[in-house]
Amino acid sequence: MYNFEFSKPETIQDAVEAMKSDGAQALGGGQTLLPTMKQRLASPESLVSLCGVAEMVGVCEDDAGNLSVGGATSHAQVADQAAKSYPALAALAANIGDPAVRNRGTIGGSLANNDPAACYPAAALGSGASIITNTREIAADDYFTGMFETALAEDEIITSVRFPVPQAANYQKFDQPASRFALVGVFVAKYADGVRVAVTGASNGGVFRWSEAEAALGGDFSAAAVSGLGAPSGDMIEDLHGSGAYRAHLVGVLTRRAVEACGG
């Protein structure tokens, strides 16, 4: 990879300052960015490591029933620390990549990259989470704007992610066995005011909400309620691992499995 300037600030304020330099790029755990840089598909002029910002690491609950996850919290830490308060989120984190990747990769890095087959975008959109940055709060519904695209400004840092904890939730991931990304993944979360269904891995537009399933499950939270639905419409990913029709079919299958796993 090409060389770059490197800094490792210890506070959010210093990280924000460092991100103001030309060509600066935030570095989370580097499990996507470093392989991308090795292939010279990215060549930032400077990297600002966020792993040393202690205030961005860890999981905590507030009185309103929300779970806050620091932007630099690793998947392994979420798997461990969210296990009691939000088991579906912890289980999702515990099945990303492999153990060594989970020890480095971070939630902020995953959400900032917005890979169309990544797991965390499904959890954030499916939970109606808020992406909290150094300047503002972005609702998940407004945050994911397309494949590898988000509402983040170039110098903006995800400091934490706030998840409203649902009554029941489950994530079903159909692994692409070589990459361990989701061929399709579906996150279902049941709240007092409705059900959210978020789908990753399937669409060329990145993670999306399956509104027909949400409406059906809102009236009757059971696998039967979604079994009559046609496959979601949209621009499905087609590649050697699966056709668009196959992925669309999987969305229905995984949604039913997720609802059943929630006890519905």
């Binding site: 490197f6 490792k8 580097g30 470093l34 392989p35 990297l47 392994a76 060594a100 020890n103 480095r104």
Partner: peptide, 12 residues
Amino acid sequence: VAVKSCSMLAVE
């Protein structure tokens, strides 16, 4: 903790 040393910068 276990990490893949080819995917971590030495400066880190």
